[in-house]
Design a binder for these strands. Structure first.
Lengths: 249, 249
DNA sequence: TCTGACAAGTTGTCAATACAACTAAACCTC
DNA sequence: GAGGTTTAGTTGTATTGACAACTTGTCAGA
């Protein structure tokens, strides 16, 4: 490790352990700590940043939980290989997963965000209420692969109406705008025949079977804040998912 | 809280924080702490069990991570509503999810575990090697809903061959037998036409579209240890999933 | 050259202590 | 009865310190 790093800011609203976690993450992302590299030991980090070892452990615990590093008793803390692939059905938003998986997708709005009164959709958490709804279609190499119909809580995120979301993740926009991240999601999967309008959008025939995923995202302090229905052309793209264990490890 | 609870065992190989986490979980599962109930405070638990508050916090952190409880600064630690439903496509095994969701499913073996040489299946991690393979069919109210073709690493889990897995989760069996839990899973989703043998098993017609999920489970120290192909009758059962955030919260 | 012992490092667990930030209930006043 | 203040509790963050369990590297002896 280089000479004494710049100190953490004890007056920051971010706790010290959090600041250190971000520092270490920066180091990993910048290539200072490539995959397989061993991080400075806990006592070393404690000395270098002038904090206690339990605080260092809390920082590395954050990275352990994110699967960025793993700790080996007696050996050290190592940077872990981050799995590739378009993790479209995991918690990260769909467009974020395209980016992460290195897939060039072009997304166009099918309908712009506007207030909709939701009726007759019992699985939609906004049933009987008003949501901001919009839809968009993603293509890979010109072929439609994903149609999304998205509903956001109009009261929670009133500014959604004015945003161009053709090229960006709604979750990322919410994180940037409201500093909230999805904490969990519920989704279910069905094979369903397409109606005529959706089949036209997706380049299929009416009645063709397609994978439909209904997803409800929960944010801290805002349960069921976003609902999305995804129509996935699994014949054109592998819709993958990585699940992480939730127990203590 | 009742009078002094029985003490934790400091000589146990399970750490104290882990023992306390299990005690609290027992209390939640037994109904002592129903949904919404407030757990004894951290100082109270520390006094009651004769341990330090950081150790209590470690115990409750385990339960926070499992989404069993949530902590509210200034208020306390509360038991969280555990979502219902058959979480079949999450990390827990399929049969475990039936049980958890209160769905009575009858499962029969279609083929018993036997050593198979895997050829011509590039997505199977045992391609070109020998795995222990078997298949089973689950019915709900007499209707087939799920066909599973499962492959386990023959070298890792040689004893699979002799086990009756018609009514029990392979993951749970592995945990019991080898003390290993799945740490993560990769899966992908496709809509595919059924061949004649599988359609017969599932009560469908050859060529009918079905949701096919290919899943690879990773255990500590045993990556890609189990591979399963699931054929899901989404017309007969809701195949749901709960995803948890991985970041620090 | 190999093996075993030892030393020095690592992470894992645990504790006491202190203060900050927050919540909820009780109490007092109008 | 309502509103504001105070009090006593809660969780969150942090520190110092200690010992256990493990790994790795070095060294000495066979």
């Amino acid at each position: 490790m280089e000479s004494s790093p710049s100190p953490l800011n004890p007056n920051s609203p971010l706790p010290l352990y959090h600041q250190l976690a971000e520092r270490l993450l920066e180091g990993i992302r910048s290539g200072d700590f490539p995959t397989g590299a061993r991080l400075p030991s806990e006592p070393q980090l404690a000395r270098a940043y002038g904090i206690g070892r339990p605080t260092v452990r809390q920082a590395t615990e954050v990275l352990v939980r994110r699967r960025v590093v793993e700790r080996k008793r007696g050996s050290g803390t190592f940077v872990v290989d981050t799995p590739d692939g378009a993790d479209l059905l995991s918690l990260a938003g769909t467009l974020a997963s395209f980016e992460k998986g290195g897939i060039e997708a072009e997304t166009e709005m099918v309908s712009a965000p506007s207030r909709l009164h939701i009726e007759g959709e019992p699985e939609n958490p906004f049933e009987g209420r008003t949501a901001v709804g919009f839809s968009r279609l993603s293509r890979v190499q010109g072929v439609p692969v994903l149609l999304e119909e998205i509903y956001a809580d109009a009261e929670r995120f009133p500014q959604v109406e004015g945003v161009d979301l053709s090229g960006r993740s709604l979750s990322q926009w919410i994180e940037q705008q409201y500093h909230m991240r999805p904490t969990s999601a519920d989704q279910n999967f069905r094979v369903t025949p397409l109606d005529s309008s959706r089949s036209a959008l997706l380049g299929l025939s009416e009645g063709d079977a397609i994978l439909m995923v209904k997803r409800t995202l929960h944010f801290e302090g805002a349960r069921s804040a976003i609902h999305a229905v995804l129509y996935c052309r699994t014949d054109q793209l592998v819709f993958s998912q990585t699940l992480q264990g939730v127990g203590d490890e």
